[in-house]
Design a protein around this nucleic acid. Structure first.
Lengths: 190, 190
DNA sequence: GAGATATGTCAACAACACTGACTTATCTTC
DNA sequence: GAAGATAAGTCAGTGTTGTTGACATATCTC
């Protein structure tokens, strides 16, 4: 968004968060804008951690594994595969990196010794916290910037409606599983 | 989300769209949930078109190019690179596919003959419409499913707050450019 | 003990991103 | 009108992350 897109004259600067009128009135227009906003928002959202990960020689795949293992300690391989929706082979490549470099540890399952329970080490947790920090910062900033006009609730209300929207975007027959998963998340440790 | 995650007993089924209490009260808890919801929502959001694209031998990169060229006809290469944030070489690979197979056409710029203005052909528009349809369907469904409790506005209000949130998630010094871009979008053709 | 299940591993391949280097056409500026 | 900047195209090599398919090993269940 530098050279090219900034080159046109700025036509009547709009209020923050406000899109052109037809975008919201036309049927489907809302959705059309949301398609692009999802693209741009997600791009910037993952861009923050990417810069940190690069310093460790890790990529997004490593981030996802770190994130879910840190947040749901004791996750099994099968559960992780189910969350990430990748193949065992893809997971193993990045998981191996993280284990070899001491960010994640495996532990044989107690009730089922075939399982490998995954846990973050101290450094794994520290790295994940770094990555989470920049993402939380962006989200908090987004929630704290009220869209001036028509701002009914406060930050909590905005967080709630964002959660509702995103949850509703998830494949219906998976929502229950995701809610169950999230109810299980690690309680705020150190 | 099949085997593994569904194996645990379902503890007190929650109302749709409602997350566990601490998720919304704790400071930062909102954001933590949003991190994961963004991941899951985006995954399913791009999953729909992926299935269609596979039938054409195309991937997500082709989709992004098709989408933006269809929506902003006459886009230049530089503008597209700026939007997608990829290198010229990466773009050229997929763009070549789309041009060779007749989904996109180039046209020499009028004011500046160095530029190549990009346009969708009829079939390019048709394919894009197909891809957009499934994404719009998911979004409309998400907006039309009110989160039962605490539902102030209607669909339009939910669309507005989703737009506000996503726009606020975008890197601040790019929002203006994106708003400008979106104000320029193709008006509902055919 | 037989068969299912959880995990690990080898090998090959594809999509999509990157860097670096270089060409061609066209515009801008002096 | 020549010099330099800019828009686009291209060649070649590389890395990350995903895929299939085939097997091996340990452990659980019946």
């Amino acid at each position: 968004m530098n050279r090219a897109m900034t080159s046109e004259a700025d036509p009547a600067p709009q209020a923050p968060g406000e899109l052109s009128a037809p975008a919201r009135s036309a049927e489907g227009g809302d959705s059309d804008d949301l398609i692009e906003l999802l693209f741009f928002a997600y791009r910037d959202f993952v861009g923050d951690p990417d810069r940190i990960l690069a310093q460790y020689g890790f990529g997004r795949a490593h981030h996802r594994v770190l994130h879910f293992v840190d947040r749901y300690p004791g996750l099994t391989i099968a559960e992780l595969l189910d969350i990430l929706r990748i193949t065992k082979q893809s997971l193993n490549r990045v998981l191996k990196d993280l284990i070899d470099q001491g960010y994640i540890e495996q532990q044989t399952g107690t009730s089922d010794r075939r399982q490998r329970l995954l846990f973050c080490t101290e450094s794994g947790h520290a790295l994940t916290a770094d990555l989470t920090r920049v993402q939380v910062r962006r989200i908090v900033r987004a929630l704290d910037a009220p869209a001036d006009a028509g701002d009914e609730g406060g930050r909590d209300a905005r967080a709630a409606s964002a959660q509702d929207f995103l949850l509703a975007m998830i494949e219906p027959n998976e929502r229950a599983a995701i809610r169950r998963l999230m109810a299980r998340r690690a309680t705020g440790r150190a």
